[in-house]
């Protein structure tokens, strides 16, 4: 599991310092602090940013909103963001709200509020509500990563690293080359959100990353995966043989 990368756009050093302190305490990785619109764009496009915290007012101008608008318009690396503001001025909020999805953090903020705002931003951005806030689930699936709530903070796992997933009731065991861990997510949801060109269901309880398959032994109903992991192939799901590119 990796740390989540956060970009801070904030022109007041004391504010950004406080933010950095809280984020680092909670195992977030701060990739940089931008103090202007230009710097922010530069940092945003040259780093693998997962979440951006944007102060609406930069040097007295609502450049934060302009930044949010810019990254929302360019479709490619659009990422979740949180607005940081010291007042609930209606006009500013109405303008900021145009950049959907909209999450915000009011100054002064405490640790819990920061973490809550970040989680909300991820939930809203990937349109998977009531995940981190509920007790039933703890994982949000984006195109690249799984965002998993671990304690107070968020972690991410690169989806292509997953070898297979073993479902156990409402838990899912995720097995990557380096580690194994359990997430809370329903099977239907994970099946819906994962790229089905890459992941295939081979058994009632197994979802396999087809790129990690080394050998399939239909006679034994067995799939050998990289890292010498084994998954079961049940009769119901033998159709995957047709889908997988094999040498002939």
């Amino acid at each position: 599991m990796d740390k989540v990368n956060v970009l801070i756009i904030e022109d007041t050093p004391s504010e950004s310092d406080a933010l950095i302190k809280v984020l680092q305490t909670n195992n977030y990785n701060v990739v940089g602090v931008a103090t202007s619109f230009k710097e922010a764009l530069e940092l945003f496009y040259h780093n693998a940013v997962d979440i951006t915290i944007i102060d609406i007012f930069l040097n007295g101008n609502p450049d934060g909103i302009s930044f949010a608008e810019t990254i929302s318009v360019s479709p490619n690396p659009s990422k979740p963001f949180v607005f940081l503001t010291s007042s609930t001025d209606r006009q500013i909020f109405e303008r900021a709200k145009v950049t959907q999805p909209f999450s915000y953090l009011m100054k002064p903020f405490n640790e819990l509020e920061i973490l809550y705002a970040l989680e909300m931003a991820v939930e809203k951005f990937y349109a998977q509500p009531n995940v981190f806030l509920s007790e039933e689930e703890d994982t949000i699936i984006s195109a690249e990563y799984l965002f998993i709530k671990k304690g107070k903070s968020l972690k991410k796992v690169l989806i292509t690293d997953i070898i297979y997933i073993e479902v156990e009731e409402k838990y899912c065991n995720i097995i990557t080359e380096k580690e194994k861990f359990v997430i809370l997510i329903s099977l239907t949801k994970i099946l819906k959100l994962l790229d089905d060109a890459m992941f295939c269901r081979t058994h009632r309880n197994y979802i396999v990353n087809t790129e990690k398959i080394i050998e399939i032994i239909p006679a034994d109903n067995l799939i050998i995966l990289s890292g010498n992991y084994k998954a079961t192939l049940s009769d119901t799901y033998k159709d995957i043989l047709k889908k997988i590119r094999t040498l002939k």
């Binding site: 609930t88 001025d89 209606r90 500013i92 909020f93 405490n110 819990l112 509020e113 806030l133």
Partner: peptide, 21 residues
């Protein structure tokens, strides 16, 4: 009436947590 005001669905637990902090 200058304040931003939007009624949304909120989970009381988190709000209470954040305030108590």
């Amino acid at each position: 009436k200058q304040s931003y005001f939007e009624i949304t669905s909120l989970r009381l637990f988190f709000i209470v947590e954040q305030v108590i902090y």
